[in-house]
Design a protein around this nucleic acid. Structure first.
Length: 266
DNA sequence: ACATTGACCTGAGAGC
DNA sequence: TGCTCTCAGGTCAATG
């Protein structure tokens, strides 16, 4: 789930459910998610406070605690948030459970425990320390900045787009979608991509991420010209009808259309 | 610098 | 039904 669009939807979910309510209970149900802090320290930082606003950078979600720093959530491969009242609606694999004074709860759920939970004084400092590039949807990440961030690099376009130090937020499936929409072979070497192709990739990058947010990051609502809904099915390419293929690129499975996504820079 | 591999975790689904 | 194998939308460290 959680790439940039998914995390943006989670951010809005937290905004819509959990702001300005006093936090009465904090249960840490898996220590392994905690980013260099103890359960006790997390509890004392959160208890009695409330979430006042949220911020997202790439795949990281920050929740501002009144007068006491920010809670930082990363969702790994399988994380999400759930707001509910009755404890029998508590999802399995809840790793952090926050109880509010109105009787509702917010659960951080993560089946595979590959995410992280931490604290920071300030999101900007956290981003810097992590070495994250600009958020992929930030207005600062314009075409000039995009080209600049990629200049002097080698390797495949797919690895570059997924490299969080270059720009933050793109993961495996949205990367595949961007390259499909741009008609670019995932393993294309960066150095061989011409200006026009780079421009197309950049345009599709913004378009795909924004559209995904508009569709609430729900794969079943994505446009039928997209590749995402075809994952795991045997349906053909939405553009040419041909078979969708997969290859490994930097350890991840890339879905692509061999006919529509040419090998060359063009 | 880059790619590749395995590790970290848990469970779903396929194939037998 | 139950076993085994593979795979999953993310990162990190070690190795070539």
């Amino acid at each position: 789930m959680p790439e940039l669009p998914d995390v943006e939807i989670l951010r809005r979910y937290l905004d819509a459910t959990s702001l300005h309510q006093s936090i009465e209970g904090v249960e840490v149900r898996s220590d392994r998610l905690l980013e260099s802090l103890s359960a006790k320290k997390l509890q004392s930082a959160i208890k009695g406070r409330s979430f006042e606003e949220t911020f997202r950078h790439g795949k990281f979600l920050f929740a501002h605690l009144d007068d006491n720093g920010w809670l930082v959530l990363h969702f790994g491969m399988s994380g999400y948030l759930k707001y509910f009242k009755q404890m029998d609606h508590d999802p399995s694999h809840d790793r952090l459970l926050i109880g509010f004074s109105n009787g509702y709860h917010l659960a951080y759920v993560s089946q595979r425990k590959l995410g992280s939970i931490g604290l920071t004084d300030e999101p900007g400092a956290f981003v810097k320390k992590k070495g994250l590039g600009p958020d992929a949807l930030s207005p600062d990440m314009d075409f000039t900045a995009f080209k600049e961030a990629l200049s002097g690099r080698r390797g495949s376009i797919k690895s570059a787009l997924m490299n969080q130090e270059i720009l933050a937020g793109i993961g495996n499936i949205y990367c595949d979608e961007i390259l499909f929409q741009a008609g670019v072979f995932p393993k294309s070497d960066l150095t061989g991509l011409n200006e026009e192709t780079m421009q197309r990739i950049f345009k599709k990058l913004k378009e795909v991420l924004q559209t995904a947010i508009d569709k609430k990051a729900d794969p079943s609502h994505m446009p039928d010209t997209w590749l995402i809904p075809l994952r795991g099915t045997d349906r053909g390419c939405p553009r040419c009808g041909g078979d969708i293929a997969t290859i490994k690129v930097s350890g991840r499975t890339a879905y692509y259309c061999p006919r529509c996504q040419g090998k060359a820079g063009e």
